[in-house]
Computed example of a mutant assay.
Amino acid sequence: MIQIAVTGKPNVGKSTFFSAATLSDVEVASYPFTTIDPNRAVAYVTTQCPCKELGLKCNPRNSKCKNGIRYIPIELIDVAGLVPGAYKGRGLGNKFLDDLRQADMFIHIVDASGSTDEEGKIVEPGTQDPLEDIKFLEKEILMWVYGIIGKNWNKLVRKILLENLKFEEVVYDQLSGIGVSIEGIVKAKNMVGSRFDKWGKEELLKFLKYLINICKPMLIVANKIDIPTAEKNIKKIKNKYSRVVPASAEAELALRKAAKAGLIKYTPGSSNFKIINKDKLNKKQISALNYIKKNILEKYGSTGVQKALNKAVFEILKMIVVYPVENENKMSDSQGNVLPDAILLPKGSTPVDLAYKIHEEIGENFRFAIDARKGIKISNDYKLKNGDIIKIVHTA
């Protein structure tokens, strides 16, 4: 399952985002280190399910389908808030950074209203520059990785040269624990340009920065858009960074809780909701819902929480959704479940990759694949497309 770490300073709405995305119960409070151990829960990315297009009633097993929208599970890790100097062990620094190792990417929650200082304390809105918060986290992660490899760098270079080893393999041995890839190392090395045996600290840091961006990409969630000072700051952030989603985690949490209680009809990611049980809402609650509708949904198109999850998985990690079936005529598995599974795969995956994803034995015994929509055999190196329905034929 894809794992995404939700990171950022204390008190920027990180745990609220996590709660809204997963609708799980975590402690939400306005003081540093509210989250001491990483919380883990399932969130969902959304995509159009083929069931409506095909006029079928699906029976999902590994995911959910509601009104033609397929909800596919991913794992969120709510990592405790960082403070400047975490890579040196300040606060609970190294523990928090270690919690990020297994994540496929980061979602960095930033207080776009500028109402939390660098330590995560509440200040007057507009007095803190969110761009500084982004730089702070980038530096923390960069220096954390540098701390793993920097002290032995000269020895590693000599080893590569004396023993005629491959640069990428030696570096991978050092950094494999944080989830980098051989391909990412090669790409980052080429981006630096100069010979690695001539690198000083500046070039090594540049290499590591490229490597982190490739193997541990980051999405910025500009939170607290309901506070007036956020609008100006969001423009500043978007001028400098391309991966930015404005959001109000607090509004999303309120809407999901209201929907769960049967008070409103709301689809995560939607630009609207419908009150269905007005008699059970008091004036304060109705006023709050109207505020969310006017100042967040109508202005920004959504609360941004679901948009952030979808952008992270489909745009940044470049995943696609494929539906494996055993009966291509009924679009079902052997038990008759229609469109039972929705599988997330990297863009560019082949039917063989899908077979291994389903089960190692199916991959090892793969024979060929069928495009269930067209009813035709496809080549083994066919590049799967988002929404494909595929039958894998294999030996017993």
Rank of each mutant, 00 (worst) to 15 (best):
G375E: 05
N277K: 14
S176H: 07
G177L: 00
M143A: 00
I320A: 13
Y44V: 10
V145G: 03
A20T: 01
Y241T: 09
G179R: 05
T7A: 14
N233E: 06
I4R: 01
N67W: 03
Q335G: 02
Y172G: 03
Y291K: 07
I275F: 05
H394R: 12
I275N: 06
L56E: 12
M218G: 06
R367V: 13
K206Q: 12
D129W: 15
K299Y: 10
E360V: 12
H359C: 04
P130K: 01
K9Y: 07
S63I: 00
V28I: 15
E315P: 01
E183K: 03
I149M: 00
K159T: 07
G179V: 03
T47L: 02
L165M: 06
P73I: 12
K236Y: 15
S115F: 10
I134G: 08
V83T: 11
Q102E: 14
F314N: 04
V26R: 01
K265I: 04
D388E: 08
E298Y: 08
P217C: 06
L82G: 05
N94V: 13
L92V: 01
K238Y: 00
A254T: 13
A251H: 05
V186K: 07
I343G: 07
I109H: 01
R90V: 02
R70Y: 03
I275R: 04
F18G: 09
N152Y: 03
T47V: 07
Y291S: 10
T350S: 14
E119S: 06
G262C: 09
S113A: 15
V352G: 08
N11H: 08
K198L: 04
I2E: 07
N190L: 11
Y210C: 03
P125R: 02
I212F: 10
A5D: 13
G89S: 06
L208C: 13
K330W: 01
A20F: 03
I370R: 07
G85I: 01
K257D: 13
T46V: 06
S379G: 12
E360K: 11
L76S: 09
E75I: 13
T34A: 14
K209Y: 14
V186P: 00
L339D: 03
G387W: 12
T116K: 04
I286W: 09
G301R: 04
M319S: 11
N94M: 10
F167I: 00
T7Y: 08
K236F: 15
